[in-house]
Design a protein around this nucleic acid. Structure first.
Lengths: 144, 144
DNA sequence: ACGCTCTCTGGAGTTAGTCAAGAAAGCGAA
DNA sequence: TTCGCTTTCTTGACTAACTCCAGAGAGCGT
C-alpha cells in the first residue's frame, strides 16, 4: 500500500494542510501537470486557493523529494509524484505533452559525462524531444 | 578553414546584415551566452541594436541550424555556434554556467527510448546538472 | 537603379513565476 | 484544551525573459 498524502507530508516534516493534501492527491491522478493546471484542479476541490499557495506547496514538496519538477525548454514547469527512480521524459515540441520513459540504462545516474570540467554532477537529465500523436499528423509537421 | 559568418548566412538563405554578422562573430568567441549577453556584446560592437533584432537573429539562426539553442530549466536560454555534432551539456544549478560535454555514446541520436508512446522522437537531449567549481565551495553546497 | 521582400526599430503586452507583509492555521507543550 | 511559536496562506505588487505588432529601413535579384 502506498502511503497517502498525510503520511508523506508528515514524513517529510511538512505541515498537513488542505492545499498540500489537495495538490498531492490531484497530482497523483494527473501526472505531468503544470502549476496552472494544479491550481485549477485544487480550486475545483477546495473552492479557493491562492496561486502563491500552489507555488509554495509545489516548491516545498519538490525540495523535500515528494514531487519531481520537470522544466522542458520553452514550456512551463510540470510536476509528478513519481520520484525516487531515475526515469526520463518524452516531450512534445508542439503542445508540451509529457510522458514517462523508463531509464535507458538501468540504475541512476544512468550516464556519466566523460569530462566534468570540475563540476560536481549530481543528476543526468534526459529529454526526448518529438511530436506527440495528436500534434504529429498536422500540417505543421516539419519531419515528414 | 571554417567559413565566416557571411558565408554561413548566405548558405542558410539568410540576408547578410550587420546585426547578424555581429551576433555570429560574438557567439563564436563567447559560447553558451544568453540573449542578454549577446545583445550587450553586439551593442558594444555596433553601437545600438534593438532587443527584438537580437532575438530575431538568434531565432532565425537557430531555425536554420547556424546556432544551437540550449534552455536549461530555470535559466534563460543560451546559444552556441557548435552545431552538427550531438554533444551535450553540463549546467551549474547555481549560476547557470554551461559547458560542453562530448556525447557519452558516440553517434547521434546517442540514446533511444524503450517506448516512444507514439511520439515521433527527433532528438535526445542530455543535461548534466551540478555545481560548477566557482559555486561549489560556497556554504550553500548541499552535496558535501 | 528599381522595387519586392525580408529585417530592424520601438513600444506595448504576455507568461510564468517571485517577493513581501500581514492574517490564519498547525501542532508541541503546558 | 488552551497557549503561543512557527509555518503556511492570502493579497497584491513586481520581475525576467520573451513575444507581438506596425511601420521604417535595408538587402539583393533583375
Amino acid at each position: 500500500m502506498t502511503p497517502g498524502p498525510r503520511e508523506l507530508l508528515k514524513d517529510a516534516g511538512l505541515r498537513i494542510t488542505a492545499p498540500r493534501i489537495a495538490v498531492l492527491d490531484w497530482l497523483a491522478e494527473h501526472p505531468h501537470a503544470t502549476a496552472d493546471q494544479v491550481a485549477d484542479g485544487v480550486r475545483a476541490r477546495l473552492g479557493s486557493v491562492s496561486t502563491q499557495a500552489v507555488y509554495d506547496v509545489l516548491h516545498a514538496c519538490a525540495r523535500t523529494g515528494l514531487l519531481r519538477r520537470i522544466e522542458p525548454a520553452g514550456h512551463p514547469a510540470r510536476y509528478e509524484t513519481r520520484t525516487g527512480d531515475n526515469h526520463h521524459h518524452l516531450v512534445c515540441r508542439d503542445c508540451g505533452r509529457t510522458e514517462d520513459v523508463d531509464c535507458v540504462h538501468g540504475a541512476a545516474p544512468c550516464l556519466e559525462p566523460l569530462d566534468t570540467a570540475g563540476f560536481a554532477v549530481d543528476e543526468a537529465e534526459v529529454l526526448f524531444w518529438g511530436l506527440c500523436p495528436d500534434c504529429r499528423p498536422s500540417g505543421t509537421c516539419q519531419w515528414c
